[in-house]
Simulated scan of single mutants.
Amino acid sequence: MNPLRSTLLQGVAFAVLATLCWASNFISPYVLQGYSIQDFMLVRFMMAGLIGVCVLPFYRAQLRALRPRQWLTGMGLGVVGYLGYSSCIAGGVIYGGPLLIAAFIGAVPVLQALLGNATQRSLRWGQLAVPVTVLCLGLVAINLNLLNESASGPTQLGLGLAFSFGAVLLWLSFSAVNQAAMVHLHTQATAAWTCLMTIGAGLAAVALTPLAWGANLLRLPSLGVTTPDALHLYGWAALIALLSSVIGAGAWNVASRRLPMVLSGQLIALESLFASLLGLAFHGRLPSMAETLGLVLILIGTVYAVRVILAPTRLASEQPATP
Rank of each mutant, 00 (worst) to 15 (best):
N2W: 12
T7D: 10
L8T: 10
A13D: 10
L17H: 09
A23L: 00
S24Y: 10
S24V: 13
F26T: 13
Q38V: 00
F40V: 03
M41P: 00
V43N: 07
C54Y: 13
C54L: 12
V55T: 11
R67Q: 15
T73E: 10
T73S: 13
G74E: 04
G78T: 03
V79P: 09
Y82F: 04
Y85H: 06
S86M: 10
S86V: 09
Y95S: 13
Y95N: 11
Y95W: 08
G97F: 00
A103N: 15
V108T: 02
V110S: 13
L114A: 14
L115R: 14
A118W: 07
T119H: 06
Q120C: 09
L123K: 02
A129S: 00
L144C: 07
L144E: 01
L146F: 15
L147W: 08
L147T: 02
S150K: 02
A151L: 14
S152Q: 12
P154N: 15
L161C: 15
L161G: 15
F163A: 15
F163I: 02
G166Q: 09
A167K: 00
L169N: 07
F174C: 00
F174Q: 02
A176F: 15
V177H: 02
V177L: 11
V177A: 09
V177T: 07
A180L: 09
A181R: 13
M182W: 06
L185Y: 05
H186M: 06
W193G: 01
M197V: 09
M197K: 14
M197H: 10
G200Q: 03
G202F: 04
P210G: 05
A212M: 11
N216W: 02
P221H: 01
G224S: 07
T226Q: 02
A230S: 12
A238W: 10
L239A: 12
I240A: 01
S244A: 14
I247T: 10
G248A: 05
A249Q: 12
A251N: 08
A255Y: 07
A255C: 03
L259I: 05
L259G: 05
V262C: 11
S264M: 11
S264H: 06
G265N: 02
S272Y: 05
L273E: 06
A275T: 14
S276F: 08
A281F: 07
A281W: 06
F282D: 07
H283K: 04
H283T: 03
S288M: 06
M289I: 13
T292Q: 13
I300L: 15
I300C: 10
G301P: 15
A305Q: 09
V306W: 13
A311Q: 12
S317L: 15
P320C: 02
